[in-house]
Design a protein around this nucleic acid. Sequence first.
DNA 1: AATGAATGAGATTTCATTCAT
DNA 2: CATGAATGAAATCTCATTCAT
Lengths: 210, 210, 210, 210
Amino acid sequence: MTAATAGADKKPMSKSKAEILDAAAEVFMKLGADTASIDDVARHLGATKGRIYHHFPSKGVLLAEVCLRAADFVHEVVGPAVDASATPEANLRRMIALHIPEILRTLPYHKVIIQSYVGMNQKSTTALERELFDRIRVERRQYEDIFRNILKAGIEDGSFREQNLSIALQSVLLLINAPVFWYKPRKNEPTNFVADLTDQLADMAVSALR
Amino acid sequence: MTAATAGADKKPMSKSKAEILDAAAEVFMKLGADTASIDDVARHLGATKGRIYHHFPSKGVLLAEVCLRAADFVHEVVGPAVDASATPEANLRRMIALHIPEILRTLPYHKVIIQSYVGMNQKSTTALERELFDRIRVERRQYEDIFRNILKAGIEDGSFREQNLSIALQSVLLLINAPVFWYKPRKNEPTNFVADLTDQLADMAVSALR
Amino acid sequence: MTAATAGADKKPMSKSKAEILDAAAEVFMKLGADTASIDDVARHLGATKGRIYHHFPSKGVLLAEVCLRAADFVHEVVGPAVDASATPEANLRRMIALHIPEILRTLPYHKVIIQSYVGMNQKSTTALERELFDRIRVERRQYEDIFRNILKAGIEDGSFREQNLSIALQSVLLLINAPVFWYKPRKNEPTNFVADLTDQLADMAVSALR
Amino acid sequence: MTAATAGADKKPMSKSKAEILDAAAEVFMKLGADTASIDDVARHLGATKGRIYHHFPSKGVLLAEVCLRAADFVHEVVGPAVDASATPEANLRRMIALHIPEILRTLPYHKVIIQSYVGMNQKSTTALERELFDRIRVERRQYEDIFRNILKAGIEDGSFREQNLSIALQSVLLLINAPVFWYKPRKNEPTNFVADLTDQLADMAVSALR
DNA sequence: AATGAATGAGATTTCATTCAT
DNA sequence: CATGAATGAAATCTCATTCAT
């Protein structure tokens, strides 16, 4: 079972579209979204370009929908976990505890979306692509705001050190996304590797803020 | 004065080459190294492709030399700062205090090298390109090792928490490179912004490890 | 009511086919027969390609049938109007008086057939398409011959100036088709605009020949 | 000697560009601008697409420049011929006497521009293309105005019949462009064929207006 | 050292057409 | 009858690279 077909989305997505997105995420991850051609994606699907273009009007839109999906995955898992009655630290730990396994489960999507953070490659995009990338930006902002609010609350109630909020936020977000940069799933991986990694990163994040 | 022309290198570099590297870093940063064409770089230089091809045999080599320069910049500044007689924490703080201003000074280069971390975009490279990218990998490994040794020493002497060394290392490295992802120089920037940023990140890094 | 459904043909045409032809004429007119895709026609119909392919085996045949219809429209209206006992000038006037309103009534069809006069756009056609385009050529030739005979009679009986018959014929035919190039129906069009236009063009044609 | 290289333009045009325009006009004429591919044009040149794209940024621009050239050809020959002191009829005859040979000399260009009159194929055009087509429209309008003024003067001084000016103008313009639709140069063409054709069309045009 | 023309390989995209349902 | 998915061929366009000057 693949990441995309596993995810439960608001708008149900045709199986064919989800399969294409999974393949695109995989191929874009491996080769880089720019280097990978639509033919590469099609080959990975065992189909022709035509199938992809039947569902996505351009490579840019395909890429955007992969990124949108990446943003959705974590948002839907982590968003509902915030507990207004819990302490900021408890909330942050719970959020990280959900975030890390989710990005590892849907790793290819996140490997692709971080490419779009470092290379803001807009040479000539269509209106639809711009709209999609705007939505991605909005989703990302919303996701950041969940963390920003927790950090702010923590600073205000003294559980986190007095510090520049934006810098702290960006640093924590990058910290909990760090595995996207280096993680490679292995067969002989220790059973509790993900759990340990999650604990360590939660510890680091909380300590870094205190 | 630009980053490249400012930097003092082992092998002196012709002014023309340095100018081209600066332009390439800028353009690769803005458009992404894949999206940017050699013509884009030439246009930014106010020249034509010929000038670039006169100094660099291929786009891949140009990109590699930009990345190599990025690695060199921090390596040369941070490397000599390690003091065998100082505590791990003191060393780490000193290293970060040098690292952050340097990456901000030479930001475009680091925005480019980061791209090569997220997308393994080498489809078919020449021998020279492979050699250069190997050198980059070696330099990066060496730079990481400086930090790894400090972290290891800190864990052993108890000043840092017991934890998975690799995860800690990757996390700290990403933390101190975080500004590359979000920093944008501004005119009305507070005078001591860089100093404050450096302090905060050093605090976060050290706390995260403790 | 549309042009196609209004026309009374020898072979009765299914309503569906006529609707498709009307839509095709409209879309081919607006975008050009080459530029317009079958999908464009289908969209204009509020249907999908399948509906079109159910009735027409290929785009070439669809185009050919639009052109054939264009030729039929004027042929059927003007052909029977020739009166062997009338003078050439009277015949010519009567023919023009029928021709002009008819091409304005079925304008999209004629905008399409004109395209096929200026660009010989047949790269590789099927046997059926070739057969249809042959029939169009024959019809056109027959229609031209009606005029050619009138002109010839007029030159012979002295009512028209002595002149190269072919040049005169082509010129008159283009003259009476001129509105296809520039006419655009308007809401606030004077009631007798078409009648006046018809008169003026008949006058011009007859004078041009005298 | 080809049409393009023969023409004397305000802005001198590189020989290479002129050659490409000549080839494009020829190929667009034969196959239709839509049907003809850039490869077809390149093949006719004995070169590759690259050469064409080095000089023209898109097929649309190439087509536009062919059309612009078509408009320029007649404009530059006929424009200066108007003599304010001559009668409208004399002016019209002189203009036609220059117009006809010029369109036959540069026939392919005019076969192409005519295509753009009947198929207003704008599906997605770039800003540059739109600008060029605007310039074509302006040139065309200016050329028409030369004739419009003559016709108006003729109607006012009574040498031409009282009639709708716009209809008369469009009809005369189409009449004098009629050969573009049917003329095919032949080897065994009578020596004075062009002269005779010119005379006959001038006679027809003047008579049509009287 | 640098330019401008040209090439060739490959990428994106379009679209007529077929087919299963 | 009609749809939606899919194909395959071709078209437009890009661009790293080479070369003559």
